[in-house]
Design a binder for these strands. Sequence first.
DNA 1: CAAATGAAATAGCCTTGGCTATATTTTCCA
DNA 2: TGGAAAATATAGCCAAGGCTATTTCATTTG
Lengths: 142, 142
Amino acid sequence: MAEQQADEIQTPADRFARAREAQSMAILEDYVEMVGDLIEELGEARVADIAARMGVAQPTATKAIARLKREGLATSRPYRGVFLTEEGAALADKVRARHRTVVELLVAVGVPEEVAELDAEGIEHHVSEQSLQAFERFLKAR
Amino acid sequence: MAEQQADEIQTPADRFARAREAQSMAILEDYVEMVGDLIEELGEARVADIAARMGVAQPTATKAIARLKREGLATSRPYRGVFLTEEGAALADKVRARHRTVVELLVAVGVPEEVAELDAEGIEHHVSEQSLQAFERFLKAR
DNA sequence: CAAATGAAATAGCCTTGGCTATATTTTCCA
DNA sequence: TGGAAAATATAGCCAAGGCTATTTCATTTG
């Protein structure tokens, strides 16, 4: 149990496939996090608010929510607010924590706060569990 | 000239819009870099090789190349190889350099080499010029 | 309590980036 | 040199994530 790295070689194709995979999760993660934020702040997540905060038109948000429901991350009834399932809430927490860590890491290596916040929005979805742990160790060890 | 940060506040919507923007450049960047790599390694970039390395079907690569041509980054004639325009070559260089820097930064904060290579593939497209410069300063100052 | 207002859903369109199956063109060799 | 094999292009499909315009439903409120 000394070596934890699998010894499979990673072809470029593998790496790109992995990045594409991460990308398909990214929007899901963003919406779940946003729903979580709104419930916490306002007590409920309305489609109109989700759309406004995500910077998209209302039907785009409705469609995204449909996908969240399909994936078992959220529930909602027509003309009612959106709620997270247990799984959705867990994902929202994970995403929020990861976002914070990524911002902190960027700031720690010298990226200005505002820029860190901007870049983190895209970066976070591609940070693996292993990298995240490295980030945390680095931040603690500073 | 003391403050260099614009004082516009960044709403979440702004940040998401920016991340979406970066995403639409990402695939373009990947293909341009791949074409550059193949030309360097093999003297030419054939559609079949591009597809294999990107891990996509051949028609997918053909379509991506069509987009590169539309955007003025590459040229090609039917049943012939793909070439980069001056602009395309410049972009390829920039992307390659940025990729290296991101991997080095990840390794510098404690991410294992192989993981760094994997994660960098997705992260790099969201690293702004400002963050990149911060990364370089950090690496030099170590 | 009925009508106006406002929110959410639906219809229908676009682009991108995947795919498979099928032409078409080049290339290479017997 | 002609025909098989290999490479590329084309056709046509799908899902995702945008959009606008319109309909439907819920909630006031006069």
